[in-house]
């Protein structure tokens, strides 16, 4: 995330040394959370509305290290979101590939996917619960439903928007459709497909938690709701932070995949991969110039 700073949004901010930067971050952190803490302690902020950061931190500490009650909820929620993600992405990409290959499918069937998308997925939660019950499957189903569209539309867009010259190059080389698909269409589409997966990941987590709000016996969503019903605001906020942690870990995972897979979009990675391939080539073929 730090590379946003160098030439993007934060252009114009004076470059500081790493230590100065760290100090700056620490200062901002202190102002926000120190102010909040003091406000809460002095009674300017009602603890029932916004508990003090230290109370929330203590709750988190308790959940993770004293009772350990959070782990099961954490694992269940991650499991449901991940399964929903995998199913939603498989359906979305599967449909997109079919639509990219078959113009008939694209014209007569794909529009339903669009209608489906403009219908707010969250609104069908009651139906999903009715169909899939109160257990894991309804959470997974809602997660899949909420996250299928970005991979669908991005994959379709990526596969269809291929450079015209590249198409002609492959045709002039006598390429089959299958070769063109694997050697040109898929790799060209990968950046936008991965962007779709990132959106889907967030969607899957939202779907899971909303379904848990509705009805569940386990999961971070229901945990949060139980705290809230008991007006236990420290607990609710702690659960919220756990959700952020989940989002962050899934996001980091996707960023890592982006970094690994899309090596040709980063200069440092191109150098790395280039020299790896060079070593492999020389190991396999020797030096033809010699």
């Amino acid at each position: 995330m730090s590379d946003i700073g160098s030439d993007g949004v934060l252009a114009g901010v004076k470059e500081l040394s790493p230590i100065q930067k760290l100090a700056m971050h620490g200062l901002v952190f202190l102002i926000i959370f120190g102010g909040w803490e003091v406000g809460a302690r002095l009674g300017y902020v009602n603890e029932l509305i916004l508990p003090a950061p230290t109370s929330i931190a203590y709750r988190l500490y308790e959940m993770f290290f004293v009772t350990g009650s959070i782990y099961w909820h954490y694992i269940i929620t991650m499991y449901e979101a991940t399964m929903g993600f995998i199913i939603g992405v498989s359906i979305g990409m599967g449909l997109a590939i079919t639509a990219a290959i078959s113009p008939v499918f694209r014209r007569y069937w794909a529009p339903y996917a669009v209608v489906f998308n403009v219908t707010p997925g969250i609104a069908v939660t009651p139906f999903i619960i009715a169909w899939f019950g109160f257990g894991w499957s309804s959470k997974i189903a809602l997660a899949a439903l909420v996250c299928f569209f970005p991979p669908f539309i991005n994959t379709l867009t990526g596969l269809l928007h291929i450079d015209k010259d590249a198409t002609e190059l492959f045709r002039s080389l006598g390429s089959t459709k299958k070769q063109f698909f694997w050697k040109c269409q898929i790799p060209s589409a990968l950046p936008i497909i991965i962007a779709g997966l990132k959106l889907a990941m967030t969607g899957a987590l939202i779907g899971t938690i909303v379904a848990q709000f509705f009805s569940a016996s386990e999961g971070v969503g229901i945990l949060m709701q139980r705290f809230a019903f008991r007006l236990n605001m420290d607990g609710s906020f702690a659960a919220l932070i756990v959700m952020s942690l989940m989002g962050l870990s899934l996001f980091t995972l996707m960023e890592y995949m982006d970094y690994k897979v899309l090596y040709w979009r980063r200069h440092s990675r191109m150098e790395e991969v280039g020299s790896k391939r060079k070593r492999k080539w020389f190991a396999e073929n020797g030096d033809f110039s010699a």
Binding site: D163, E168, S172, G174, W264
Partner: peptide, 30 residues
């Protein structure tokens, strides 16, 4: 298209994810 005719365009039309040598080997791969 026939194999004794080759084309080149104003744009290089290289595959970004392939090194130079891998791009040059594309015709053989196909």
């Amino acid at each position: 298209p026939r194999s004794d005719i080759g084309m080149m365009f104003q744009k290089a039309v290289l595959l970004d994810w392939r090194t130079s040598i891998e791009n040059v080997l594309l015709p053989d791969e196909i």
